[in-house]
Amino acid sequence: MTSLSAESLPVETSEHVVSVRQAVRRRAVELGFSLVDQTKIITAASELARNAIQHGGGGEVIIETIALQGRRGLRLAFADRGPGIADVARAMTDGYSTAGGLGLGLSGAKRLSHEFAIEAAPGTGTRVVIVRWK
C-alpha cells in the first residue's frame, strides 16, 4: 500500500465532526468517488468521529489517499485516548449502545466500508481504521 497524501485533523468537538465530514468529502471528490460512494464514506466518518468524541474523550483522524495494485482509495484512521472497548464483538452488534445511542455507528461504519479494523484494548484508547476503494 502506498500513501499518496495524508492529513491529520483533530476530533475533539462536534464542530470537528463537521470539519472531518467536509475534509473526507473533499478527498472523495478528488479521488473521483461516485456520489453514493462519497456519501457512504462521509457517513461512516461522521459516526466514527462522533464515537471518538462521545465515547473516547477525543482524539484525531488521519485521512489518507492510498494506492494498492493500481487501485486508489481513501483510508481513515481514527484514534482516541479513551477507555477502549472491553467487548468489541458486542460493541459491533447492531443496536448495542452504552450511551443511549442507536448503536449503529460501529456496525454501520463497517457496512459502509470495504475494509474495517478496530483495536480497542482497554487502557490504550480505541483505533478504528476504514478503507473505501474507488
Binding site: V36, T39, S107, G108, R111, L112
Partner: peptide
C-alpha cells in the same frame, strides 16, 4: 444517495 446510505447504515 442519502437514502441508500441510510439503509446500509441500518
Amino acid at each position: 444517495a442519502v437514502a441508500i446510505t441510510l439503509v446500509e447504515l441500518g
